[in-house]
Structure formats: structure tokens, C-alpha cells
Design a protein around this nucleic acid. Structure first.
Lengths: 192, 192
DNA sequence: TTAATAAATGAGTGAACGCTCACATTAGGA
DNA sequence: TCCTAATGTGAGCGTTCACTCATTTATTAA
């Protein structure tokens, strides 16, 4: 018999990697238990169901990250500073645990049904920050959702490519390039 | 008894919508057959397996689109013109069939296992075009993969947001804004 | 009208999956 | 040492799924 909480962590860690590698629906309880070296029944001592396991991984990791971003942006005054800090934070987070990040993307975009638009995601934080920046006349007025989508696009797609190993550098090394690109997207305003 | 080829099209059309709505793995053969108003066995007269059906949908639609982009870019001389044309084409394609586009994203990013990096995708075309533009000194030198990822990011993420209905305009209306944003990302060069 | 062929059908099959539960093992206090 | 609670186990259950095939229905040619 092992320590219960360590087993729970082992399951979470193993499940996370398999979810990223094969997708949530393609990963079976048998896969997770086998890879973790435990029996299937043991998994159910720690998690109610497979759905609940996936949801807990998403919830704890992603929502914490979004709230962290929100706390962080409050420390800065200007949109440029907020954006710089948020992207740096994102890059550091990504480099620290690219697997976790891939899972968050996967979970949010496709496979977790419980994810509601109401919850405070990183997207919402980004939109809020940009709206404030527009009110401060730091960047030209435009549809906030569009602006946030473009900024997110630059960062997310690069991160995805990085995850698929088509880009060799650490994401942190690209942090300033990404911030600059995002800033140009925002400040360019309308049609050039 | 209906005409065989019309039944096949009916199946493809129905499957596509269900794949987008619920994801490939969450859509069952019974779902498709039921929604199309045919028996399960009939589906297997036209498609070898569920995987083959999904693969055929992806293959015919996506690869055709990538080749179309490649043909299109050859009609233009400069990177700016190529990029403008490609993005306009993409936006028109998206507006014509957003469901199809969502499927392509879904299929490529997560759920189709057979997608190989060797095949000539839209990404490859974009990288090729950007590399040519750099050789022509139209845009500053930088890692081609990174440049392509940033450009793709702007367009894809906006399209995804559009698909999730958080942006109200047609994508075609945003075409020039997107092109301008992509161009700014490319011409900004290194760190600002 | 009839024979031959193509298309459609849906009950049935085996495999895989999420999950349960009766039982085994271990840890720590009395 | 014994008892109790916590933890671990894996065979097995019920369900769902992709897929098959013997049979029926429609179409075409003679």
C-alpha cells in the first residue's frame, strides 16, 4: 500500500501525458492504469470517473493559470506592459510544461464538454486588458474580440508549432518577438 | 433503392456535419446512418470504415484546398500580392463553408491519425511563399517556420473565434484587416 | 414477364470500454 | 499481537461501438 495522495498525483501525471499524446477519448482507463503501474480499481479510489479526472486536470491547471494572468496584469499600468508581462508569463509557463499546455489547448478546443463560456479564461482576461488599453487611447479602437483573437493567434499558433517541434528555440527566447508582433497587430489599427 | 452515388454524397454531407458538431470519435455510425435516414449496412457499401470515411472527407477537402492555394499563389509576383490573394481565398472558403473549415481544423489538429507531415498542406505552401519573399528581400530575414506560424496564427485564431460566433462579421469583411495584420507581423522583423 | 444485378437493410457479433465489488494487503493505534 | 481503517487489486458486468452478412427490395436487360 502506497501513500494515497502520491498515488493520486501519479495518476494525474500519467493521465495528463497520455491525454496529450493520444487525446482524451482515445486514452482508456486501462492505458492510464497500465502506464502508472496500478490497478484500474485504484484509479477509481481517487477519481470519480474518467470525465471527472479530465475535468479536474483542466480545471486546476487552466483556471489557476487564467487567474494568475489576471493577478499579474493588475501589477502594471499600461497595456503594453500588461501584454509584455502576460506573454512572458505564458512563455515561461509553456517552457516549464509544454505537455500541460498542449493538454489545455486540446481540452478547451475540442474534447471537454463541461467547459463553459462563463468561466473566467485567459481569453476573457486578454479582452479585458485590451478594452482598458483602448479606453486609455493606447491603441486604436477596434472590435475587442477581433483584437484579442489576433493577439492570441500570434502566440497560440507559435506555441502549437513549438509543441509539434517545428520551431527549435525555447518559447521564452521568442517572448519579445511575440510581444512585438502582437503589439504591431494591435497598434496598426485598421486597414493599411 | 436510390442512386448509389447520391447516397454516398448524402453520407459524406451528413457525416461532415456530425463530425464538426460532436467530434469524430463522439460520432457513431448509428448517428450518421440515423441522421442520413439510411441503414448502417448501407454506409459500408460506400465506405470501407469509419476511419476511411473521415480520411476521405479530410483528404478530398483539405488537400484540394491546399493545392488550390498553391495554384493561386503562382499567379502573383510579390509576397504581398500572394499573401493577399491567399488570405482572401481562405476567407471566401471559410464563409462559403465554415462547417467544412471547422472540420479541417479538428481533423488536422487532433483526431485524424493518418495525417502525415509529408503531405503538402496549406502550411507548407505558406512557408514556401514566405521563404521566396525573404529571398526577394521583401520582408526581413527570420526563421521561416516562425514567420509562417505567426501569420497563420492571426488568420486561424480569428477564424476559430468566428466559428464559435464570438465575432459577428463575415470573415471576408475582415480579409483586408487580416492581411494588413499579417503583413505587419512579417515586416516588423526582429525585436522592436 | 423474367432473370440477373445492384443497392439497401437491420439483427447479430465480437471486441473494447468505463466502471464495480468482493477480497487482499498494509499501516498504525490500542 | 490484534483490530480497524485506508488503500490496492483485477476478474467480471453491462453497455456501446464498428462492422458483417443473410435477406429483401429496386433496377435494368433480355
Amino acid at each position: 500500500m502506497r501513500d494515497g495522495s502520491r498515488t493520486k498525483e501519479l495518476i494525474a501525471h500519467t493521465a495528463l501525458h497520455l491525454f496529450v499524446e493520444k487525446g482524451i477519448t482515445e486514452t482508456t482507463i486501462r492505458d492510464i492504469a497500465g502506464a502508472a503501474g496500478i490497478a484500474e480499481g485504484t484509479l477509481y479510489r481517487h477519481y470519480e470517473s474518467k470525465d471527472q479526472l479530465a475535468w479536474e486536470l483542466f480545471s486546476t491547471n487552466y483556471l489557476d493559470f487564467a487567474r494568475e494572468l489576471d493577478r499579474l496584469q493588475e501589477e502594471y499600468e499600461t497595456l503594453k506592459d500588461k501584454l509584455t508581462a502576460m506573454i512572458r508569463q505564458f512563455c515561461a509557463f509553456f517552457d516549464r510544461d509544454p505537455v500541460l499546455f498542449s493538454y489545455l489547448l486540446l481540452a478547451q478546443h475540442a474534447q471537454l464538454k463541461k467547459v463553459t463560456p462563463e468561466m473566467e479564461t485567459a481569453v476573457t482576461v486578454l479582452q479585458k486588458v485590451i478594452a482598458q488599453g483602448m479606453a486609455r487611447r493606447e491603441v486604436p479602437e477596434m472590435e475587442v474580440e477581433l483584437a484579442a483573437a489576433m493577439v492570441l493567434g500570434v502566440v497560440l499558433e507559435v506555441a502549437i508549432f513549438k509543441a509539434y517541434s517545428r520551431i527549435t528555440q525555447e518559447l521564452s527566447q521568442l517572448s519579445e518577438t511575440l510581444t512585438a508582433a502582437c503589439w504591431r497587430v494591435l497598434t496598426g489599427g485598421g486597414i493599411s
